[in-house]
Design a protein around this nucleic acid. Sequence first.
DNA 1: GCGAATTTTCCTGATT
DNA 2: GAATCAGGAAAATTCG
Length: 369
Amino acid sequence: MASSELSLILNNANANLYPEPQPHLSMINFNSNTMAGSWDQVNPQMWTRQNVLEWIGFHVEESRFDASLLNMNYCNMDGLTLCATSKETLMGMFGQRFGGRLHQNLESLKARYANDLSENTVLSESELDILENILHDSFPFMHGPNLGPLLETVVVQSSIPTDNSETKYSYFDEYTNQLTPESDHGYDSLTESFQSSHAGSFLNPSSPESSSSSSDSDPENSEIPFSVSSKITVKQEPGKNQKRGRGRPPKPRDNEGYEHFIQSKKSKHAPRGTHLWEFIRDILIHPEQNQGLMKWEDRRDGVFKFLKSEAVAQLWGQKKKNSSMTYEKLSRAMRYYYKREILERVDGRRLVYKFGKNSTGWRVEETGY
DNA sequence: GCGAATTTTCCTGATT
DNA sequence: GAATCAGGAAAATTCG
């Protein structure tokens, strides 16, 4: 990673963690009379850091929670970040009971403003991106890049559901964390985005698969009914099934004003690893999470096979926010890798590819597992 | 703004 | 016949 990039990330993370003089418990004006503060009159999404602190303080008082147990790093977030934090994460941060209480109250507050949300704040792709970036900035230790020394300054409680074995930035993690079975609304979906790093939660074997089915009689190749449908809801143009022209469609530009805000939060450069082959690699090197999407045929040689080709394509499509991705298109992109020797041809074997000499990060020596 | 790189989309034809 | 593979062509987008 370029040093400037690293420093940008560190700055962002620091800015989010320590934007102002670090609040201390003694500085928090916990309402002694347990009256709700100004936060009660405001949509949680709009809360300032102070609002969040007051809200936490309110519940500390109400529940007689031992405030000395609070990790102030976890209290230092704004409402948008708080709303995007899952129940499990809150429980990891504040303990099962207090975190659960906070989550419950937050949900009811969010519900209070649900109408406003549905009428005025249908999240666009861009807005989802913002939340994603805020989450990454605010909790890089959850599944973000390894920020080294900075991360060591962050108290990561063992109760937080993180995969300690995974310090590499995993695009698969990033992606699968967005896919949850519960919600059908983009915002809700993202609030659950930290639900777990258990990618299994996004796989629903009982759900119907997209139109394809394998003709391969190999049982491993029989595609289990599978759905990764619209867990992330983005604005879609009507007439989705209309035949489109050649080439990639233009990016919607109906959020120009918001895009301006995005720029302050979103890195100018796309994160590394958004390449297809890296996405594929990440699925493969997380066998415990890939739920049989793909498998190694020969790990040593880098030979792998798609077991659920359409499902992988759907995942890739969702990662790229492209609901029309298919295995056919994905495989075209894969074939372009032959020329660059990122992949090598495996003749005569369907759905089988092989990493080439220009691919990295999949070998046992590199991954350590 | 330009150009290279990387997809994405559509297509035709071949193979399994 | 359906799924997959192969690769040309064109276009969109990102990034240096």
